[in-house]
Design a binder for these strands. Sequence first.
RNA 1: GCCGGUGUAGCUCAGUGGUAGAGCAGCUGAUUUGUAAUCAGCAGGUCGUGGGUUCAAAUCCCUCCGCCGGCUCCA
Length: 576
Amino acid sequence: MDKDELDILRHTSAHIMAQAVTELYKDVRLGIGPTIEDGFYYDFDLDHTFTPDDLEKIEQKMREIIKKDIPLVREEISREEAKKLFEKAGATYKVDLLQKIEEPVVSIYRQGDFVDMCRGPHLKSTGRVKHFKLLNLAGAYWRGDENNPMLQRIYGTAWKTKGELDDYLNKLEEIAKRDHRRLGRELDLFSMSEDIGPGLAVYHPYGTTLRFIIEDFLKEEHKKRGYQFVISPHIMKASIWKTSGHYQMQYPMYFFDIEGQEYGIKPMNCPAHIHVYKSQPRSYRTLPLRFFELGTVYRHERSGVLHGLLRVRGFTQDDAHIFCLPDQIEQEILAALEFAFFALKTFGFEEYHVMLSTKPDKYVGTEENWERATEALKTALEDNKVSYEVDPGEGVFYGPKIDVKLKDALGRLWQGPTIQVDFNLPERFDMVFYGADNAQHRPVMIHRTVLGSVERFMGALIEHYGGAFPMWLAPVQVVIAPIADRHLGYATEILNELTANDIRAEIDERRETIPAKIRDAQMRKIPFTVVVGDKEEEAKTLAVRGRSGQDRRGVRLKELVLEIKEKVETKSSDEV
RNA sequence: GCCGGUGUAGCUCAGUGGUAGAGCAGCUGAUUUGUAAUCAGCAGGUCGUGGGUUCAAAUCCCUCCGCCGGCUCCA
């Protein structure tokens, strides 16, 4: 079924839900009820506060409306007429919507006594909606503005067939199983605690192993690409944040006092990198300079937005600042973009959604530089054959930017790399270089990340693989399961050989049965479980069980080592 | 921050005003085990926090905190 058809189905479902709510409750004022990916919602303003039990009641009512097979009738009326109609009905939000509509004629849809303003189109009658489910309740500000009243939103989903609905509901379950917060605990990767503080992750040994693998990869690749590594302090005096402007714009920072001096915890690494730049006179001959730091920053995110590793208060950016000549912008952006895609691909992300944000109404810098930088970003995208969308006017005031969102195994999008040109900070910090003309010129600054934040990326990575990491990323690559105590010696020999080859292995020494050891290793999503008993010890071989269930007997240790090393070196994501 | 939900053992959850429970995990013991859970026993909780109502509160009310689903914002 094509997308438009589904859209119509869901839109009609939203209308049926609105009718059901209107019939069930008094004084309901309708907000808007659009379709969204995989479903629909409708916003309501009413005295009654919905509870999860109400969803069932509303669904029941919707079924009645569907059973009656009420026709949906389109009418076109003038804006004025519509305004009168909705004013009379006390539909204040619809009247508010009408204020913003310029067309002289609007369409309304009637189904029985229920009327809603709507562009349409709709199904012919309510009976054509068959497979739907109301999912959850939420609060939402009218028109998304927190100065407006908050409405109650009901989310639902609707599909053409029962099979598709069931598939979708199963997918929701699958998503829940892959939730990085759940896997983080189950795989003993990280945890967060009320005692430590909200939005602050603590890495456990396995999580730290995974993080170091990611960080080592980043360091190596940055080195290859001509970045120089720097380190900056976590706290810096408030004055530098005044120079950067973060202080005045009330950036959500943490400030505190040391012996009468105000300090702030860094929410960004740029000022320190600029400081490195300014520590000596710079010549055009030495540009571009690329300073890289795995910089841990803290931002005071509002409590309601925190979410596992994906939205935290303390995180580490794979942050770099490139200082270059205006005519180097293009090559630098091209290189940065290639780098970002290379890294994402290495970690198994093959699909992206790329956004180019251009000059907003209020901006700093010259028209010419904006033009040049925006063109550079475009050219870099096109040279990389990346399809992208332009978000006109959505750039930050200091420069245009590229945002890359990655698509995971379940088709969800995650904020990843960003590349931003900055005309503001070089100005504010009065950065200069000496040109061939022996005069002082302003360098251009590019902020860029490859993965974004290590925390967020790890969260996305955990969900992408559902915790079943490819060999090179798996915190534990091999679990050795001796059948009885008498095999512990042989197991230790194997462990030592694996460890000597930089393979991350453990022995399951518990006095448990083999089925129990296998089950535990399987639940931990360990790539290989090596079972050793009398037969193996005698023949000096291994029985190797892969995570996907296949069992190989009589394997030589050397073969296994080579196989694992090969997978690690190629960063293969082939299942074992 | 705002709206709604929610908080009981390490984890998953039961317990609606009258003596805090289960499974898994943990510990102890027995079992020496061949590809997704061997058996038994033991231990573990000021029921998120502070206050209130009551003869009596995990249970009812209020405060604060955390978490979950959204809104808004972002790496």
